[in-house]
Design a protein around this nucleic acid. Structure first.
Lengths: 220, 220
DNA sequence: TCAAAAGTGTTCTACCTACACCCATGT
DNA sequence: ACATGGGTGTAGGTAGAACACTTTTGA
């Protein structure tokens, strides 16, 4: 890291935390997971699940622990990726100088079971509550990056169940990007990119032609 | 940051540093700035300029101080952008658990004056010395991201002088991307994007037709 | 007048966009 | 037989790729 040896104990270290912007699709809406704070600062405001990085904890593990302990989410069902590190504003946490490594997480909403009375809830990105710290900015940035990622990669699959119909997948894209997609073009592109494979199973549902089920093909 | 108040003093904090991958174009080559280490660990090996984040120092300021103090570069002439935060491997720094926020910096090589005997030097990315810590990986990742950025934005301007000819700019792109560009297509694209403006000045040099000088137009 | 780099246009191709009709099912 | 969402093909436009010759200067 540093070229010249420095006396590490001579100066106070900033605290370092991980915050996670967890996204899901639920009730036709893109939602983020937030926790209602139970103490100062920002008592009663909503915040991203986060956690200080322990001395012997890899940062992705910190992100997973935050999900588990703060949001009661099993980290194994969440797709996690590092986003950005916030450390410009010295007073973003009023208690202590804190640098925060932000991750985003994608999860299929019905992989999560809620317990009654828990403090973690989903909020539509179009109707966010008042947020603690600089978490509003962080969420907005995460949404921008999520959309970019979705356009240029397989990203949206992380929000889908194992088996899905193409219409369901298209809906997910539309919800994330907040714009209608053309059915024929959408499918053409999927097949060109070879990211889905037909399972030769039908999803029977409703008074109409049954839809073919597909699953995601991981790309090399 | 964190939802539930925690006793910050209860656990030891990891150290947090900033490392900067400084790029320049020199002698027809893409180069990174490295420092030869003067102590253990990795004595004699080369490393990126870096610095621990002070308690009251914004992280970008840490990056700038690293450039100034370790590389003797005036931070004002460097374009800086955050890249990624490395904190998975607990032993990447053998002395202490260190999380490192990596920035890349772009600088025009002749904005920098070297002092005799200094430890900071430019190294071609095609001929890197043995590197300390995990700095080889970091540099490789930075190159990948630099190329991506150059393709989809104005990035390369950060490596150019105030006034330049289109051939010089094209050379910069070719050096970064390591592939030839077509002169006509290159210019067509530049004009379509309206990122350069003609200065109606000529650069007379050599036994051939003089080239028009251009400067960069910052986009809205 | 020659060498050396500057400057300039057109054609072909591939991909993206827009768009409308038939199909299989439940009621 | 009708309502509902599932499934498919084609034509036009646009942006990127390939490609060669004329111009201006210094020696």
């Amino acid at each position: 890291m540093v070229t010249k040896e420095e006396d590490f104990s001579k100066f106070q270290r900033p605290a370092i935390a991980v915050d996670v912007v967890v996204f899901t699709i639920k009730d036709g809406d893109l939602r983020v997971g937030l926790i209602e704070r139970e103490e100062e600062p920002f008592l009663g405001k909503h915040a991203l699940p986060g956690r200080f990085v322990r001395y012997d904890e890899p940062i992705e593990e910190t992100a997973k622990q935050a999900l588990k302990l703060k949001a009661n989410i099993n980290p194994h069902v969440v797709f996690l990726e590092q986003l950005y590190t916030v450390g410009q504003d010295l007073r973003r946490d009023t208690r202590i100088r804190t640098i925060s490594i932000v991750y985003y997480g994608l999860v299929e909403s019905n992989k999560i079971d809620f317990q009654p009375g828990q403090k973690f809830h989903w909020h539509s990105i179009y109707n966010l509550p008042v947020l603690a710290f600089d978490h509003k900015n962080i969420i907005e940035y995460a949404i921008k990056r999520l959309r970019k990622k979705v356009i240029e990669s397989d990203f949206a699959f992380q929000l889908m169940p194992e088996e899905f119909t193409l219409t369901e997948l298209q809906r997910a894209y539309e919800i994330i990007l907040n714009e209608k997609q053309d059915k024929r073009n959408f499918r053409k592109k999927l097949f060109e990119l070879k990211v889905v494979k037909a399972l030769h199973k039908k999803k029977m549902e409703g008074a109409h032609r049954p839809a073919e089920l597909f699953s995601f093909v991981r790309r090399k």
